[in-house]
Design a protein around this nucleic acid. Structure first.
Length: 431
RNA sequence: GUGACUGUAGCUCAGCCUGGUUAGAGCUCCAGAUUGUGGAUCUGGCUGUCGCGGGUUCAAAUCCCGUCAGUCACCCCA
C-alpha cells in the first residue's frame, strides 16, 4: 500500500533513501522547540486534530474550504483536519479565560493539514511550532514572542548569517492606505497587492494597486524608507536590549496574507533566499472576541514555524546532528555460556536507567560489534570468566579506546563516569 | 484545479534516442572465509509484474495514448 500523496513516513537514521524523512531529525527539532519554549516560560497545550468545519469558515470565509482537508463524518457533521492552530487556541482560551492569570504564554506542536498539490517546502501535512501570548496588548509582548522565535532557531544552530526576522505592521500600512487610497477601496485588496509585491512582475502589482488608486512608486518609497512606527521602535528596542538586534529588521515588504492580523506582523526568512518563509506571525487583537461571539475580548499574538522548510534549511546548512542513536552500552556476548550472567547485568544496567542493547541470539563477534557501532553506543561491555571461575566485565569506551576491567557491580558506575556521548555536531549531509 | 519534467533491484543509476537472445553495474543485505580492539578484505548468494493499463509491431524497458505517483512551478498561503 502506498501512502497518501503529500504525507510522510518518518524513518530512524540511517535513512533508507535520499528523500526519506528522519524521525530522529524530527525529534531533534521538536526538542529544540520545547526546550526553548520552556526557557521562555511557555506552557504546552493541545487540541483535537479534527474540528468542525465552521471553526475555519467563520474566521476566513467560505473560500478557504477549497484548501481544507474536509469531509462529512458518519454523524453527518462537516469536519476538517485542522489547517492551523489559532482558532482552536482561541476557543480554548475563551472557554477558560478566567482560570488563568494573564498573560497566557502557551505553545503547541500540532500536525496541520491542507488539501492541495504538494511542492517544495509544502506538503499536505506538516508539524508546526505554535507559540501565542494572550492578554497583553503592550509591544513588550511582541518583543518577547519574537525573541522566542529567534531563540528557537538559534537553538538549532542557526545564526544571524542564516536567517532574519522581517518586521512590519498592519497599523503602518493601514495608515498609509487611509492616506493614499481612493475612497471606497478595501484594505484587504491593498494588502493582497503588497503581499504579492515580491513575487509578481511590476505590471501585475500596478494593476492591483490601480484598483485601490495607489501608485506603485508611493508603495516602493514607503517600503524603502523603512521608518519604524513607535510600536515597532519599542519592539526593536527590547530586542536590542537582549542582544538580538542582528536578527531583526524593519521591512514593510512583509504584510502577511491572512485577514485577521491587526498590528505588528513578521516573517523569518533564510538569508540566502533559497527557501520559503521559516516562520510567520503577528498580532490578532480582535480574533478571540470574534470567535467567542464577543464574550471574551483579549488581545493576542502568535507565530507558527513549520518543520518542513526548517528541516530543509538545517540540511542545507549542514546542521543535522551527526549521530542520532545513543546507547550507553552494548553488551557483547561472545561466550554463550556467559549469556545468563550477561542478561542479569543487562537488567541491572537498564534498571539503573542506562540505555543498553545486546545480541538476542548467538552471533559472530564482528557482527555484534558492527551492530553496536550502528546503534551509536558509547561503550561496549563484555563479560569474561577468570581461570578461577570469577566473572568480571571489560568496559570499553569507544571514543577514547580505553578499556578497564570491572567487577559486575561497578559496571554501571563506570558507564556513568565515562565521558558522555558527544553533543550533536554539524555533519556532512546524508546525500 | 493547471502546466513541465521524471518513474528500471532495498538504495544510486546505466540501457530507451536508433524496438531484436536470458535487463545490467556499484552499494546495501544475507552466508561463508579471513581479521580479532575490530565498520577492512576475499568468495558466494538473494532480490525486478522495467509504476500501472491499453495500443502499434513478428517482437516493447525502448515507440504512441491514458492513468497513478514523485519533483518543480502556478493558484493559494495557515
Amino acid at each position: 500500500m502506498e501512502r497518501l500523496p503529500g504525507f510522510r513516513d518518518f524513518y530512524p537514521e540511517p535513512l533508507p533513501d535520499r528523500d526519506a524523512w528522519s524521525a530522529d531529525l524530527r525529534h531533534h527539532i521538536f526538542a529544540a522547540w520545547r526546550n526553548t519554549a520552556r526557557r521562555y516560560g511557555f506552557r504546552e497545550y493541545d487540541g483535537p486534530p479534527l474540528e468542525p468545519l465552521d471553526l475555519y469558515t467563520v474566521k476566513s470565509g467560505a473560500e478557504i474550504v477549497g484548501q481544507l482537508y474536509h469531509f462529512t463524518d458518519k454523524g453527518g457533521r462537516d469536519v476538517a483536519l485542522r489547517p492551523e492552530m489559532t482558532p482552536t487556541l482561541a476557543r480554548m482560551a475563551a472557554a477558560h479565560d478566567r482560570h488563568y492569570r494573564k498573560p497566557l504564554k502557551w505553545f503547541a506542536i500540532p500536525q496541520l493539514f491542507r488539501y492541495e498539490r504538494q511542492q517544495k517546502g509544502r506538503l499536505r501535512e506538516h508539524f508546526q511550532f505554535n507559540a501565542d501570548l494572550i492578554g497583553e496588548a503592550d509591544p513588550a509582548g511582541d518583543a518577547e514572542l519574537i525573541a522566542l522565535l529567534i531563540d528557537s532557531l538559534r537553538a538549532l544552530g542557526l545564526t544571524a548569517d542564516d536567517f532574519v526576522v522581517r518586521l512590519s505592521s498592519r497599523n503602518a500600512w493601514q495608515a498609509f492606505f487611509e492616506q493614499h487610497a481612493r475612497p471606497g477601496a478595501t484594505p484587504y485588496d491593498f494588502y493582497q497587492a503588497i503581499d504579492k509585491l515580491e513575487r509578481d512582475p511590476p505590471e501585475a502589482t500596478q494593476a492591483r494597486l490601480d484598483a485601490v488608486g495607489i501608485p506603485l512608486d508611493a508603495v516602493r518609497h514607503f517600503i524603502d524608507s523603512g521608518q519604524p512606527t513607535p510600536e515597532l521602535a519599542r519592539i526593536l528596542a527590547e530586542l536590542g536590549a537582549r542582544g538580538l538586534a542582528p536578527f531583526v529588521r524593519v521591512d514593510y515588504g512583509v504584510i502577511r496574507g491572512l485577514a485577521y492580523y491587526t498590528g505588528p506582523v513578521f516573517e523569518a526568512f533564510d538569508r540566502h533566499g533559497k527557501f520559503r518563509a521559516l516562520a510567520g506571525g503577528g498580532r490578532y487583537d480582535d480574533l478571540i472576541k470574534r470567535l467567542s461571539n464577543g464574550r471574551v475580548d483579549l488581545p493576542a499574538l502568535g507565530f507558527g514555524m513549520g518543520d518542513v522548510v526548517l528541516a530543509e534549511l538545517l540540511k542545507d546548512r549542514r546542521l543535522r546532528p551527526d549521530r542520532f542513536a545513543q546507547l550507553d552500552a552494548f553488551l557483547l556476548i561472545e561466550d554463550e555460556s556467559l549469556r545468563p550472567d550477561s542478561l542479569q547485568l543487562l537488567q541491572t544496567l537498564r534498571e539503573a536507567g542506562l540505555a543498553v542493547d545486546y545480541p538476542l541470539v548467538a552471533a559472530k563477534s564482528d557482527k555484534q560489534f558492527k551492530r553496536a557501532l550502528d546503534l551509536g553506543t558509547v561503550h561496549t561491555v563484555r563479560l569474561e570468566r577468570t581461570p578461577e571461575g570469577q566473572v568480571h566485565a571489560r568496559v570499553k569506551h569507544l571514543a577514547s579506546r580505553s578499556e578497564l576491567v570491572s567487577p559486575l557491580a561497578e559496571v554501571a558506575r563506570h558507564l556513568r563516569s565515562e565521558p558522555a556521548a558527544p553533543a550533536p555536531a554539524p555533519a556532512s549531509p546524508a546525500a
